[in-house]
Computed example of a mutant assay.
Amino acid sequence: MTVSTDDIVRHAARDLFNGTRLDLSRMSAELGISRATFFRRVGNREDLMGAALLLLSDRTWADSIARWHGTHGDAPRDADGRLRCLWVMETYRREVAASDGLRKLIDSEPVVALRVLTDPRGRVQPTLIEAHTALIGADVEAAGLRPLVGLPDLSYAVVRLGESFLYADVLASRPVDLAVATTLLDTLVLGALGTHAG
């Protein structure tokens, strides 16, 4: 059976999710392909890590949206008036923070992990900004809001500020405080969209 690039990335994502260090020699042996083929398919270790972390991030984002839909359908606000995008973004952050595999990666390889996660030219951050832009844009349209700034700029600010809280222990020797992150990010988004919590 031919091993595809997607097969390798899924294998790497499983390893990261389970807290297993990415060892390209071990992985190529497990998949039954040569190291040369392995590298042709996915590039170097950081390239593979970026692709695998993107897959995990995309799944977490999609799961957060699906959980909203399971309770609220296509409504842009919940019964308390909270915007869908705020709920989804908070749920995403909490799921990322609760990932034992990601925490093990960051603890064991902080420089590499944060470079891959937060590189503006990498795989993870730009895709996450695009996902935020699409979701916020859907809420803006559904709720008839009038943003005070461009949505890509707002999404960039939200993702970067979110990163600073998610990885605060490594970036700034501060405790990870998701409650404070939610308060600040909700305030930022609501202000930029010219609205209020209700």
Rank of each mutant, 00 (worst) to 15 (best):
N44D: 12
D7I: 15
R14D: 15
L161H: 02
S99F: 05
A197P: 00
Y92I: 11
T91P: 04
A142Q: 09
W68L: 03
E90Q: 10
R160V: 14
E163G: 01
R35I: 10
T183V: 02
L151P: 03
V140P: 10
W87T: 13
A168E: 02
S155M: 12
S34N: 12
L54S: 05
R146P: 00
H196K: 12
L193R: 06
T5Q: 15
G137N: 02
A98D: 13
V140H: 09
S108C: 13
L55M: 08
N44R: 10
D23F: 03
V149A: 09
I33N: 07
R103P: 04
P110I: 06
R77F: 01
V112E: 12
L188R: 07
G70K: 07
A134F: 03
G81H: 12
H69A: 06
R21M: 09
P120I: 01
V124P: 02
G43L: 06
I129Y: 12
T187R: 10
V158F: 00
D153P: 11
V9A: 05
P120F: 01
S34K: 12
L135A: 09
S25T: 14
L55T: 05
D7P: 15
T183M: 00
G137A: 02
V112Q: 12
V158E: 01
V116D: 01
L161W: 00
V88K: 06
A98L: 07
L166C: 02
L185G: 00
V9H: 06
T183L: 00
D6Y: 13
G43C: 08
G162Q: 00
L117V: 05
E30W: 07
I8V: 15
T133A: 13
R84N: 11
P147G: 11
R59G: 14
A98N: 11
G144Q: 11
V140Q: 09
A113D: 03
S173R: 14
H69P: 00
D63M: 07
E30P: 07
T183Y: 00
R84L: 13
L184T: 08
S25E: 14
I106C: 08
A131R: 13
S57Q: 09
S99Y: 04
G144C: 10
A157H: 14
W61F: 15
A131E: 06
I136R: 05
P110V: 07
I33R: 08
H72V: 05
E95H: 15
I106T: 08
G50S: 02
L148E: 12
G122S: 03
E30F: 07
G194S: 06
L135M: 11
D169Y: 06
A66F: 04
